[in-house]
Every structure is written in C-alpha cells, then in structure tokens.
Simulated scan of single mutants.
Amino acid sequence: MKFKILILLSIFSIIQIFATGQEPDKIIINNKEYDLLNNPLEKYFEEHPDDHPIYGNKLSEFKQYKNGEQMIYFSTSNSRDYIATFKIENAVLSLVDLKIRDLNSEKEDFVSVYKKLFGDQKIVLNYSGILVVPTGKLIEAADFGYSSLHEQYQLVTINKDTVVREKDLNKDDFIKFKFRQFAQYKKTEEYKTEFKKYIQDWEESKKSELSKENTRRMSKKEIAALKKKYEQPPTEDYINGYFFTVDNPDFVIVDY
C-alpha cells in the first residue's frame, strides 16, 4: 500500500504542469466565509440545465454567445464559469449567491446573477457528499485542481442538504482521508466510465496529433519526438494520479 501511495504521489507531482488551479466556490459557516473545495452546484446543473448562468436559457445577455454570434472567453482557472456561495445554517446547506464574470468589465470582475436566475426562490440542491473546507494556514500552494495543502480542514458530510456529520482534521489525517476516499472511488461505475473515457481521449489525441495534416509542417525530429510521446499508452498508475489530482469524488462517503 505504501508503495502504491509513493507511486501516486510521484505522478501527482508530475501532473502539476498539466492541470490548472481552480477558483473555489465559497461557503459561510458560523458567519465566516471560507473557500470550498467542492462544487455542489455541478450535479444540480446536470439535473437543471436551464438554471446554469452561462449555458441555460434564463439570462438573455448570453443568447448572442450561445447562438455563435460572438465568442465568449473564460479563464482556465475557473472551468465552471461561475463562483457559488453556500451557507450552512441550522444544519442545512443552501445556496445564497451565484456570480459570473462581468462581460462588460475589462478587469474581469464578478457580478451576482442569483436574483436574475432564482428571484426569491429557495433552491433545493438535493446535495449529498463530503464538503472539504480548508480552515488552517496554507502550507503548500499548488497551481492545479484543488490540491493546495493546508494545516487544518473541516469536513462536513451532507445528506440531501442536511448536515449529518462534521469534523476537524489536521493535514495528515486529511491526506489519509483523501486516499481512503479515492480507494473507494475506484470501485464505482463513475470511475470506470472516466477511466474508459481517458483512454479513448488519449487514443483520439494520438490519432489527431500524428495525422498527416498535423505533422506535414513538422521536422523529422519533431515528428520523432511526437511518436515517442505516444509510443506507450498511459499506465493505470498515471491515470489514477491524474484523477487523484483533478477529480473531486465528493459523492463517495467514507469514514474520517
């Protein structure tokens, strides 16, 4: 097991150059705002696509972009295209704000669209999972995913928007939790689907990059380097390292 962990951690460090750090959502607990290393709205938007601030149908200002009349650009540091703010009050998780980048701002400021989307309606997230809230000092920053390391964390288990457990963990116990959660994640159908998709994407990328169309202006040396890059498919350990870095299997409930 220790050997597997060492392999995963070494791959984890290599993958830093391929993934991008993400702007986190926010959560208010006991009237204090923290970063939230989960994205509870993602599943909600899968089930309610019209409510998505960018890709839904409720905000008229985005019609010209969805129709292809204009291009819309967002930062790679926010692949969600929004920042949500949640609140835990009376042991209930709720959404209290939703912001997107202001398209009219040269400084890429964020503007709230919560009222435009939902009015005074209370949103039922129907979220179940383990929320990860860093509460301690930042020890090691990492520009990929949500992989920065902090001294202290608060974990909160949610069942259909209701808090059922919470606990403070130091960094060592948090890392142990992450490995336990990932081990269980590997047993899920979601993992199997993502693993298969990763291999398929790699094969499609290989076919595209080695195509005559892509290599016709390359030198022999460049083509040889590209062929070497795709000489062997990614190993299971490499793929697991990538998933460990960028995936967020918060739906996998484990002990902590």
Rank of each mutant, 00 (worst) to 15 (best):
M1Q: 03
F3T: 13
F3V: 13
S10T: 13
I11P: 01
F12L: 10
I14L: 15
I14R: 11
F18A: 09
F18H: 05
F18L: 12
P24G: 02
P24C: 01
D25L: 02
K26V: 03
K26S: 09
I27P: 00
D35Y: 04
L37P: 00
L37K: 08
L37F: 15
P40Y: 09
L41T: 07
E42Q: 14
K43L: 06
Y44D: 13
Y44T: 14
F45A: 08
F45M: 07
E47F: 12
E47D: 15
H48C: 11
P49G: 06
I54K: 05
I54P: 02
I54M: 11
Y55W: 13
Y55I: 10
G56F: 04
L59R: 02
F62N: 00
Q64P: 01
K66L: 08
K66T: 04
N67C: 02
T76S: 13
T76N: 10
S77Q: 01
S77I: 06
S77H: 09
Y82K: 00
T85N: 06
F86P: 02
I88N: 00
N90Y: 01
L93I: 07
D97C: 14
L103N: 06
L103V: 08
N104H: 07
K107S: 03
E108P: 00
D109H: 15
D109P: 14
F110N: 10
S112V: 08
Y114E: 07
K115T: 15
L117T: 06
G119I: 07
Q121T: 14
I123R: 00
I123W: 06
L125E: 06
N126T: 12
S128E: 03
G129S: 13
G129C: 11
I130L: 10
I130Q: 05
I130T: 12
L131H: 03
V132L: 09
V133N: 00
V133C: 03
P134G: 06
K137V: 13
K137P: 05
A141G: 15
A141H: 15
A141P: 08
A142V: 13
Y146F: 13
Y146Q: 06
Y146K: 08
Y146H: 10
S148E: 09
L149Q: 04
L149K: 07
E151W: 09
Y153P: 00
Y153E: 00
V156E: 00
I158A: 01
V163M: 05
V164M: 11
E166N: 12
D168C: 01
L169T: 12
N170D: 15
K176Q: 13
F177A: 09
K178I: 03
F179R: 08
R180Q: 11
F182P: 02
A183H: 10
A183E: 14
Y185P: 00
Y185S: 03
K187N: 10
K187Q: 12
E190M: 03
K192S: 05
K192A: 02
T193I: 01
E194L: 04
D201N: 12
E203N: 07
K206I: 10
K207Y: 06
S211Y: 08
E213M: 11
N214K: 15
S219K: 11
S219P: 03
K220W: 07
K221R: 07
E222H: 05
A225F: 02
K227A: 04
K228W: 04
P233F: 12
P234T: 12
E236N: 09
E236K: 10
D237S: 12
Y238T: 14
G241Y: 00
F244K: 01
F244L: 09
T245Q: 13
V252P: 03
I253R: 03
V254P: 02
Y256I: 05
Y256T: 06
